[in-house]
Design a protein around this nucleic acid. Structure first.
Lengths: 80, 80, 80, 80
DNA sequence: TCAGATAAAATCGCGC
DNA sequence: GCGCGATTTTATCTGA
């Protein structure tokens, strides 16, 4: 068997791993949609919920960046 | 306990479910990135791989549509 | 003159407006790069500066979203 | 006044210059979007327009490279 | 169903 | 030259 076919097999396995992961990812996206739909059915405003999730995500992200810049400062001061 | 606080608790639980799902989704996105990186390290061209995955996704999508059309035809013919 | 050529002329003018705007945009991107370079020459750490700019941008963005969600709340309460 | 505070003031002015430039850049990006929207309202296909702009940009880039190569040749021949 | 908004993917460009 | 961050383009989703 040529090295070419070996490589092809390897490539195929990479592709299939990716496709499996993307399927799982897609399933999660649908789960999320379902939760929003369920919440909507219970009387909640989806738009508001999305905004809340967004703001909380920003908090997390901002905190992480603040920690990073603190590290940068400490490094600059020779304390890292 | 007021209905308001009950609702708030319920909303909170919806939000937290969504956030958990989004974390899992994000983790999968990183897994996918990792696989691409690993393939790259093995000598594959990531851009080409993405193209392959994309084409195969289109095929899948197209096949599904064709199956749906076939189902429609069969139903229309009283054979579904 | 055919309607076709009139349309073409119109399209051309749209394209040219866009290209002019994109040139200006590109020039600004270079101006920004120049300022970073100048600051670096004065002894500042570009990475830190970028992080500061990023954090301040996040502040602005978050404030805007907080105002939006406040509007959503007020609307939901019939006070919008 | 310590050199530290002088530096801080200078840093602040760099940051503010950058932020002003970025605002202008963002405004231009919106102008561009507006032109596309206007063209769309006139019946043009935005996707096609983007493709045209992109192709023309590539042409420009290619021509510039060719001119640079020509310059190199001329220099090499002692004619630059 | 379509426009408009939102999020994701792909591409580009910079700094290290 | 490679990773990383920003930008741009594409796809998805929501509301009218």
């Amino acid at each position: 068997m040529s090295s070419n076919s070996i490589d092809s097999g390897h490539l195929k396995s990479f592709i299939e791993r990716i496709e499996r992961l993307e399927e799982e990812k897609k399933a999660l996206a649908e789960d999320i949609k379902d939760v929003y739909a369920e919440a909507k059915g219970t009387g909640y405003d989806v738009k508001v919920m999305r905004k809340i999730v967004s703001l909380r995500r920003q908090d997390t992200h901002k905190r992480k960046e603040e920690e990073e810049i603190l590290d940068l400062y400490l490094s600059a001061l020779g304390m890292g």
